[in-house]
């Protein structure tokens, strides 16, 4: 069962709770849920029960939306689970600093330089496209106080 202690994060900006409760049976595949205190995307959901005439339990398999790690939990379907607020925002890439930080500009022109180039293929391709002078949109995923560039998209004329 999920630890209840560490599931409530405070977000920096709004002061509102980072999660909200939802009855386990109403969760959906591909939706979000906190498993073992981590914000996860539900990739598998199945019901089982204790004994033939017992009550439903929900078996959840989730993938940590930041680390990709897999978590599982089983929970009576009547219980409430915490669901994280997950927000994604697109930013225009304006520069990459020498120490690997991105300069990002939001829709309303605000600039931020606190996020690193993502690791792996996405990072490599991000640098390559940037060096090639392409227009790049970065999707920033934000949940439970963590933020990370999760996807990049080359901005073609079509998208503008």
């Amino acid at each position: 069962m999920a630890d209840i202690d560490d599931t409530h994060f405070e977000t920096g900006d709004s002061g509102a709770s980072a999660t909200y409760p939802m009855q386990c049976s109403a969760l959906r595949k591909n939706g979000f849920v906190m498993l073992k205190g981590r914000p996860c995307k539900i990739v598998e959901m199945s019901t089982s029960k204790t004994g033939k005439h017992g009550h439903a339990k929900v078996h959840l398999v989730g993938i940590d939306i930041f680390s990709g790690k897999k978590y599982e939990d089983i929970c009576p379907s009547t219980h409430n689970m915490d669901v994280p607020h997950v927000k994604r925002e697109d930013y225009q890439l304006t520069d990459i600093s020498d120490d690997g930080y991105l300069s990002l500009m939001s829709d309303n022109g605000d600039l931020r330089e606190d996020l690193k180039v993502p690791e792996g293929d996405v990072g490599t391709s991000l640098r390559a496209e940037y060096d090639a002078g392409k227009d790049i949109l970065c999707t920033v995923l934000k949940s439970c106080g963590e933020e990370v560039v999760i996807a990049v998209k080359t901005n073609t004329a079509l998208d503008k």
């Binding site: 991000l126 999707t139 998209k153």
Partner: peptide, 9 residues
């Protein structure tokens, strides 16, 4: 289109 993501799955 043209989207590259680090997400698992």
């Amino acid at each position: 289109a043209n989207r590259l993501s680090t997400e698992t799955f």
